[in-house]
Design a protein around this nucleic acid. Sequence first.
DNA 1: TAGGCCATCTGGTCCT
DNA 2: AGGACCAGATGGCCTA
Length: 347
Amino acid sequence: MTRSVREEQASVESEEQQELLSAEEEEDIEREGGGEGEDEEDHLHHLEDDDEEDEEEDEEEDGENKPKRRGPKKKKMTKARIQRFKVRRMKANARERNRMHGLNDALESLRKVVPCYSKTQKLSKIETLRLAKNYIWALSEVLRSGKAPDLMSFVQALCKGLSQPTTNLVAGCLQLNPRTFLPEQTPDMPAHLPPAGTVTYPGHFSYQSPGLTAGLPSPPYGTMDPSHIFHQVKGQPYGPLEPFFDGVLVSDGPAFDPPLSPPLSINGNFTSFKHEAVSAAEYDKSFSFSVHYGGGGGAAGGHPAIYGGGSNPRCAEMPVDGMMSFDGHSHHERLMNAQLNAIFHDS
DNA sequence: TAGGCCATCTGGTCCT
DNA sequence: AGGACCAGATGGCCTA
């Protein structure tokens, strides 16, 4: 059953319960003070109620067989009490449903601002949270260090602690569209995006979150030049995130546990970034990374998990339709693709 | 068929 | 008292 069908069914059930609820409320009022229900008493008997009615009962029923219970007397559930309990329970259920829907909505919002958003292939709740945590951590590291990480370490930062399927999804997503991770402002930027929350610096790109929509909280991404984020730092194999990967670069699993509150420096000096030129020839030579990594060995062959996992449907058949995408190939995207090529081919 | 994921129900606890 | 929050239980759906 798809989620939408589920939700529809849930809403139908909810409506039915609303009707039932109002009907029972009437019934409750109608019956107030009358009747002594015996049928549903057993499983509701433990419930306490403060009604004045039925104060005296049950005392001699158990006799000496059971030890006397301390505390307030348990009161028998009358029909009216049962009805009130049901109404209360249904109200509580409805509230809980709404609460969980709100939680899910928030989670959906999070999915949209995290890399790899796809309408058709949604990340699970737990994976969304993990990826969001990694994303925040990686971006914070970039801000803190003031240096650009190489793409490899950035991707690995995103994938730390994620399941194999999600790792493959992230890797595949990155291959399909590197700018999904750190898009630049382009003329084809969705017009509905509000300028609010968009921080711009002279001479730099104004970064907007891929899935940012009006009404959503502004992610703390700030502004940065994507080419700086993804350029490979020569002589610096892992970039500023290197300490973060020491000893865990290849490992995959729950070992990853970055500090809960990474130092965040929003005053990072982005103007000190230098462009590292990638020639068009170099780009053309290496622009063929697709399909290279989907071998299917997973981490078994000693490779990082992002190169394997061909058995995973989430990787093998990447849903492109719902994926966040930006038309056209900008210079920056070509740079990113070139780096991706280098990464996936070198390993 | 087992396992993962999910929605929902439920009772307990805490807070206003 | 009532609502919010939480965690456990349960059952359905999907996939390998």
